[in-house]
């Protein structure tokens, strides 16, 4: 089960992503336990975790935030496909960086993406899910970490 101290890895990974990729720090709120089905934004990148831990990492963000993030990355394609690509890449990067602490047996999948639909983010027995709030410029997003 995901321990609260392990959340630090994901908080640091999220902080580092915005500092480096967007060159503008995000404010990361205090993580809290997920209860019920959380509200998701326009695009959600999903990474499945297997190996010594099992679960899912979600990065969900509104289109407006992703547009500004792409601009900061000097990208000039703001299509639906590029939005999907970006949320997958953010989820992949934060999850992959977590191997620094969890080790190589923390196996991450290639990203899948949910858009234009309400993803069913549910907890399996034995999993605890935490929501990490992300505030960047005037936008809000979430990282949701569900791990055994």
């Amino acid at each position: 089960m995901l321990r609260e101290e392990e959340l630090k890895t994901f908080v640091e990974g999220t902080t580092n992503y915005f500092e480096v990729a967007a060159q503008q720090p995000a404010t990361i709120g205090s993580p809290y336990l997920m209860e019920g089905a959380p509200a998701v934004h326009d695009y959600t990148g999903v990474i499945s975790i297997s190996g010594k831990r099992e679960g899912v990492v979600y990065f969900t963000a509104p289109r407006a935030m992703l547009t500004v993030l792409l601009m900061k990355m000097q990208e000039n394609d703001f299509s639906h496909e590029t939005m999907r690509d970006l949320v997958g890449e953010v989820a992949n990067t934060i999850s992959g960086n977590a191997r620094r602490d969890f080790g190589r047996d923390f196996v991450i999948s290639v990203p899948s993406v949910l858009a234009g639909e309400k993803p069913a983010i549910t907890q399996k027995p034995g999993q605890r899910s935490f929501i990490i709030p992300i505030n960047w410029r005037s936008h809000s997003a979430k990282l949701i970490v569900s791990l055994t």
Partner: peptide, 9 residues
Amino acid sequence: ISALADKAT
């Protein structure tokens, strides 16, 4: 160029 940040990889 990878997100995988563990030394073993």
